[in-house]
Design a protein around this nucleic acid. Structure first.
Length: 481
RNA sequence: GGCCUUAUCGUCUAACGGUUAGGACAUCGGCUUUUCAAGCCGGUAAUCCGGGUUCGAUUCCCGGUAGGGUCACCA
């Protein structure tokens, strides 16, 4: 029945021409979320009709990227489904079938020219500063299509198109946008313009999420739908994502990185999903940290933005930090553990690090900058850094000597962070400010501007190492003469 | 260049004719703590320009400007 609600079917249809970047994944995410939200079907389809641009291993890489984010599909090349196959290169029969229908209806004809000839037409038009239109050169008696020549769509009705887009509203294109375009290339493969329409039809796709680069070719699609007398899916045009300079749409050529790089950089998949969700969409209300389920629940096409913006990796770092806070103790430990160099995979240290990570979030930078090395390696630093604010070198040396005394007389059996804290705080409180005691210890032990507190440090390093590092600090200071 | 399209703090955005133009990130300041962080609190900061329509425009219309997309046997 006409008003019976159709089951929502969305798809993500990448070309296997390399890795996926943020833009591609975002499209997939929205299509997936919309299907999920409506208890619909999400299809993964591979658009491999350009064998020249195909890159080996792309499909696996795409699948891996999607799976990292926990985006799963109901039908796809790896799992099959009722509309198999899910690679366009294996669906040539379908395209041929519909091509034949178009020929019979007088909507398609074989292109008799060579590529060079068409190029010459184009060049001439260019020189004369007028737009090139193939239809100006449309052959009067085209040959019978035998599959060795390109098959072109014949635009019978040259007109403006206006259509509705779920996010942009009314969109339009002038008649100039419409020309006789290629449906099937001379190598027998269909073009995107044709293939995706046939696939969407056969796969019952109801909603198409796509980038704004397709707006201008929409009249082509619409004219095929008209010629074939079939219903088109709804379009939802996603806003462009700009590169970091904010000038150009993000693309591989200018630095858009492989999505899986983010995994290598230590970002949590849940954080990436959250981050991606907000590039081009925002929910009602002011909640910004969302789990995958919350996102699906809140996701509405109406709230997809129309204007593009550049994405902000500073915000990603913050989102990642917030998601780390959401992690359970075990998950956090697992996450941290995976990042630690073997020297640090020690039971006693893990909770200290997880505590730090849950505050700072950025484990990759911490590991790479060697911010955790002090646990097993004597730190190297400048003597001046040991000196707290308005104290001086001599004062610092004498303070450290007092500290040393306390540490030395603390028996091994009572050497733990609680006792040390009591002893050291007592000393610190006897000074004008606590920092002049606490800062040099902390710094002597870690060599870092940011580190765990001095009591934990002494506890983890142990009595012997603590003494050795404080002595080192004193001698470093003394040498500064 | 033709066609299409977009325009709010530095950045990402909220507002669907009436708000002291809200939030977040970043930044700055304060508080707190056990040094530094972290945390908490607070501050600075925006409607591209010009015309309309209206009692009233961020919001609607027109023009300008600036950005983006597209004009392939790529998708």
């Amino acid at each position: 029945m006409e008003n019976q609600k159709q089951k929502v079917v969305t798809r993500f249809a990448p070309s296997p021409t390399g890795y996926l970047h943020i833009g591609g994944i975002r499209t997939a995410l929205y299509a997936w979320a919309y299907a999920k939200k409506n208890n619909g079907t999400f299809i993964l389809r591979i658009e491999d009709t350009d064998k020249a641009r195909e890159v080996d291993g792309s499909i696996d890489h795409i699948i891996k990227s999607l799976k990292w984010l926990n985006i799963n599909w109901n039908e796809g090349p790896d799992i099959g489904g009722p509309h198999a196959p899910y690679k366009q290169s294996e669906r040539l029969e379908s395209y041929k079938k519909y091509a034949q229908i178009l020929i019979e209806k007088g909507y398609a004809y074989a292109d008799p020219y060579t590529e060079e000839e068409v190029e010459a037409f184009r060049k001439k038009a260019d020189e004369e500063k007028r737009p090139f239109l193939y239809r100006d050169h449309r052959p009067e008696n085209p040959p019978v299509w035998d599959g060795t020549k390109p098959l072109r769509f014949k635009v019978k009705d040259i007109k403006s198109y206006e259509w509705n887009d779920l996010v942009r509203g009314k969109l339009s294109a002038g008649p100039e946008a419409l020309d006789d375009f290629i449906l099937i290339k001379s190598d027998g493969y269909p073009t995107y313009n044709f293939a995706h329409i046939i696939d969407d039809l056969e796969m019952d796709v109801t909603h198409v999420m796509r980038g704004d680069e397709f707006i201008s070719s929409t009249p082509k699609f619409l004219s095929i739908y008209e010629a074939l007398d079939i219903k088109r899916p709804e379009y939802a045009t996603l806003p462009p994502i700009m590169g970091p300079d904010g000038k150009k749409k993000l693309g591989k050529r200018d630095g858009a990185k492989d999505f899986l790089e983010y995994e290598k950089e230590g970002y949590l998949p849940s954080a990436m999903l959250n981050f991606l969700a907000f590039i081009g969409w925002s929910p009602k209300g002011e909640k910004e940290i969302l789990t995958s389920d919350e996102f699906i629940d809140l996701f509405e096409i109406e709230q997809i933005h129309i204007s593009g913006g550049k994405y902000n990796e500073e915000k990603l770092d913050w989102i990642n930090k917030e998601h780390i806070k959401l992690l359970g103790e075990n998950e956090l430990e697992k996450y941290v553990f995976a990042w630690l160099p073997i020297e640090l995979q020690i039971k006693k240290i893990i909770p200290v690090i997880t505590e730090r990570i849950s505050k700072f979030g950025d484990i990759k930078t911490m590991v790479e900058n060697g911010e955790l090395d002090f646990f097993y390696k004597e730190p190297v630093y400048e003597a001046s850094k040991l000196i707290y604010k308005d104290t001086d070198k001599d004062k610092t040396i004498s303070n450290l000597k007092e500290v040393l005394e306390i540490i030395e007389k603390t028996e091994e059996f009572q050497f733990n962070k609680d006792n040390i804290k009591i002893f050291l705080m007592e000393l610190a409180d006897s000074k004008e400010n606590r920092g002049q005691i606490l800062h040099p210890i902390r710094f002597a032990l870690s060599g870092l501007d940011k580190s765990p507190d001095p009591f934990i440090l002494t506890d983890i390093l142990g009595k012997k190492e603590t003494i050795s590092r404080i002595n080192k600090a004193i001698s470093v200071l003394s040498q500064e003469m």
